[in-house]
Design a binder for these strands. Structure first.
Length: 421
RNA sequence: GUGGCUAUAGUGUAAAGGUUAGCACGACAGACUGUGGCUCUGUCCGCACGGGUUCGAAUCCCGUUAGCCACCCCA
């Protein structure tokens, strides 16, 4: 029986792992500059956490969660997103008492049971930040700036940053109600696609970002008349834009951006990249001013984003293998059994001195060992044969210059360290 | 989840129902037996899985699985 990775999951092999490490390192370095600390939460949570936060009627909860009941009859889900677990952790660990304002970031796998495609996996990876405990528009702006900086550091180019203002919870309710009324009119409803006819009743905001042209026409024609934003929310959004203008971040306000998670309020944003096909969202986020209180915490604002690492690497055009391959300082090549034992000892000494080195385990010809050394991109090969053992020194060959010198066994580490500098 | 396209060594590909499934890259070994990259030689590794049609299937049909594309939705 040959086993395979399950649908929508994949192995990240050594040839591409450096891209992931580079991306993660870049993210950590960037977040540190902005004062964010890492937090790691479990990949599993109570299912109820996501139903409550992401929303009962959202697709993520309704049809995309990997949920199961464990042996203790608990309802558990693999996390489909990172925000809810972090809010849970913020409240559960009383971080609010430590400091009510927290800047947190996370990196890790998320799980959604969608039909897989390139750039859309069932286990995918997100890196994101959550700044909890402030209503300031400067925070919205900073979060957007950090996301733009992250995409830049990943090498993602040609993305567009779209912003919208959904308003506070009351505004959203007003909007939803107005849209329901609008779509219930026969002359409007008859123009919508079948999906939107259904959405008009269940989740009317989603009609706004329907891709079908006829629906777009309807939305453009009637949506302008819908007034739903209160004065505070309007001002908040205007201030966010001012801060962004101040640091010359490029963005486009798109009144049809609607996020698929119920907890968003006020500012929402999305970075999309044309080269990704239909999976063009490479990062997105927004403000969620009611989530913390909905989860039993104090009334306090928060804002965050998530970037899909898998997608970002595709968008950045990273190709596996370009930077792959192990590199080693010294390849030790013994000839014969006696020499192998000596080599084994030398290996231990060199490694203890901080020198990366490797050896062949199959006792092959020197030619083969030289080839292996070449493949490993070894900078030096240390040849140990009977002659060398007799003389008490090994032959150290520089693979680039082909220069070969004899070095006494007890001075090996020092000699090599001197040459590596 | 719906619809469509696809599936040949590790990778990229050829074979339009008819011998031992070909090629390139790759891996491994060797070319006066203690010296790498180039070259040459040899070796290794494959028809996704399961049924069916046929004298005969990589090739045609069905199913399964997986990938890809669009939708749904989303990072």
């Amino acid at each position: 029986m040959k086993y395979k990775t399950i649908r929508g999951t994949r192995d990240i092999l050594p040839a591409e792992i450096s891209q992931w490490q580079d991306a993660e390192n870049a993210a950590r370095e960037l977040f540190k500059r902005y004062g964010y600390s890492e937090i790691r939460t479990p990949v599993m949570e109570e299912t109820g956490l996501f139903i409550k936060s992401v929303g009962e009627d959202t697709d993520i909860v309704k049809k995309e969660m990997f949920s199961f009941r464990d042996r203790g009859e608990r309802d558990i889900s693999l996390r489909p997103e990172g925000t809810a677990p972090i809010v849970r952790a913020y409240l559960e660990n009383n971080l609010v008492n430590l400091n009510p304002f927290q800047k947190l970031y996370y990196i890790g796998p998320m799980f959604r049971a969608e039909r897989p495609q390139a750039g859309r996996l069932r286990q995918f990876h997100q890196v994101g930040i959550e700044a909890i405990g402030s209503n300031s528009p400067a925070l919205d702006a900073e979060v957007i700036i950090v996301m733009a900086g992250l995409l830049d550091s990943f090498g993602v180019k040609n993305y567009t940053m779209k912003l919208n203002n959904l308003g506070c919870a009351d505004d959203k309710k007003k909007l939803s109600k107005s849209l329901k009324e609008l779509f219930s009119k026969k002359e409007v409803a008859s123009l919508l696609c079948d999906d939107c006819k259904r959405r008009a009743a269940t989740n009317p905001l989603r009609v706004l970002d329907c891709k079908i042209e006829s629906c777009k026409v309807v939305v453009r024609k009637y949506f302008k008349e819908v007034e739903f934003l209160c004065a505070d929310c309007k001002k908040h959004f205007d201030d966010v834009l001012k801060f962004l203008d101040l640091v010359k971040i490029k963005y486009a306000v798109d009144p049809y951006i609607v996020r698929g998670l119920d907890y968003y309020t006020r500012t929402v944003f999305e970075a999309s990249c044309g080269s990704l096909g239909a999976q063009n969202a490479v990062g997105a986020g927004g403000r969620y001013d009611n989530l913390i209180s909905d989860m039993g915490g104090p009334v306090t604002g928060a804002c965050g984003f998530a970037v899909g690492i898998d997608r970002a690497l595709i968008a950045a055009g990273k190709v596996p293998g370009e930077t792959g391959g192990a590199k080693v300082d010294v390849f030790v090549a013994p000839l014969g059994e006696e020499a192998y034992k000596k080599a084994f000892l030398v290996l231990a000494d060199l490694r203890a001195s901080g020198i990366s080195c490797d050896i062949d385990y199959e006792s092959r010809s020197l030619k083969s060992q030289m080839r292996s050394a070449d493949k490993l991109k070894a900078r030096f090969v240390l040849i140990i044969g009977d002659d060398e053992i007799k003389k008490g020194e090994a032959a150290l060959r520089n693979m680039q210059t082909k220069e070969q010198v004899c070095v006494s066994f007890d001075k090996l580490a020092a000699a090599i360290n001197g040459k590596i500098e």
